[in-house]
Design a protein around this nucleic acid. Structure first.
Lengths: 229, 229
DNA sequence: CGCTGTCTTGAACGTCTTCAACCATAGTGG
DNA sequence: CCACTATGGTTGAAGACGTTCAAGACAGCG
């Protein structure tokens, strides 16, 4: 049982009928996770629809080679594991809370029924999938760059564009990422990320803070992103 | 003016009403392209919906660094540039025929109207987007692998899974790819791809033919894909 | 025939990885 | 309170690997 106003705030369900909303409130539930707790694991059958209400969820995968890659980080308003529901496959990756997180869950059957009866939800799904596809394209571009400097610069740039806010001293990006996580996103080893980023720090390009990054010299960073050495 | 049977064969339009089909036939047209001809360019406003009826279309991008990356190769039944229509943005990449190709085109307005009036088309779009998202995820996994051997092996594997057919002597993959194109897909230089693949050829692992590849020793290739050196 | 595009090979170089060690901090249990 | 453990960050040195540049082979095609 979930409060109806809370559900209305989710873009996906903003426009459904009162009756459907009522039913949703009864069928849905909330789940609170501590940092590090798993939402689901790769290979699990997907029995529920999940949507992040608050916090951060990391979707990642451990390749056969042992390398851990991060496929994405999802925040409030993002659905996770949705594709798996749509095509009935098991989850292709793991999901884990990165911070204290609350998640809305809904049985798969309810989700599919809702989708069946409310064509307008399909539009919302299409919009989301389009956005994710774009994000993945950017990711592929990042990973295709040969120099690690470029890759990391491109990654920071994409976060900056999405979530950055002007601040005295530079562009503040409120994304808490460990060096290991950055490594997982750009396809590098931790040490490489550390070396590059501490050089940047020394050069006054980017500095790391408790809750994110401060890009102090965007112009130079963009130069690095474009492949200038 | 396009033949209605031809349109019915497109999964996207398989279930629309007779009336809508009739209108579609009038509004749609076909375009024949020779190898190398462009379908559209990055940055173009997207005025038409495009679907590949026959042939192969390469979607690629030239990064600021000068590196050319291939985002995907699309075949009969695949829509291209669809996301750009849905979110009204200009094309994010270039599209070029890789072989003699015929494409079905439909004005954007017609496409959107059709989508508006036929909710079932949305399901088809969602299915396609899901598939593409999965393909992109595989791509990201490939690019995240550190060794070039693994990356190329993973690429071949994914093509093999999708299009491979058992043959005497191994698994035949009917995909014509130049070394440069493989390089563009795995984020490597041409020379690296050549060196690795000619080694494989010598070792009797994979051989290149006129119209594709023959994987002669799948087991070993899979080992390489998993990071064994 | 000469041209263009794709493929190929070699050698030098630079970068990233690898392995190993170390520091700081925070949380845990005796 | 301290030893113990875990986690995240850091640094150095050695070597592997991919890139880069340069050159040439080969085929198809005007």
């Amino acid at each position: 049982m979930v409060d109806s106003r809370e559900i209305r705030r989710v873009p996906r369900f903003a426009e459904i009928s009162e009756a459907a909303l009522e039913r949703l409130c009864q069928k849905a539930s909330k789940r609170n996770l501590r940092r590090g707790e798993a939402v689901f694991f790769e290979g699990d059958p997907c029995t529920h629809f999940h949507m992040v209400l608050e916090g951060e969820v990391k979707i990642f995968k451990v390749l056969e080679s042992g390398r851990e890659i991060i496929l994405g980080i999802f925040r409030a308003g993002d659905a996770i594991g949705e594709v798996a529901i749509l095509d009935g496959a098991p989850y292709p990756a793991n999901a884990q809370a990165q911070a204290p997180t609350t998640i809305l869950t809904l049985p798969t059957s309810e989700y599919l029924a809702l989708l069946e009866n409310h064509p307008e939800i399909a539009r919302s799904i299409i919009r989301d999938l389009s956005l994710r596809l774009r994000a993945m394209r950017v990711r592929v571009e990042t990973l295709s760059e040969s120099g690690m400097q470029s890759r990391i610069a491109l990654l920071l740039q994409s976060f900056a564009r999405e979530l950055g806010s002007e601040q005295e001293g530079g562009l503040l990006v409120p994304v808490k990422l460990s060096r290991a996580e950055i490594a997982g996103m750009v396809g590098a080893r931790i040490e490489t990320v550390i070396r590059i980023m501490s050089r940047w720090q020394k050069e006054g390009l980017v500095s790391s803070h408790e809750k994110g990054f401060l890009i102090e010299n965007l112009a130079v960073l963009e130069g690095l992103a474009a492949g200038e050495n």
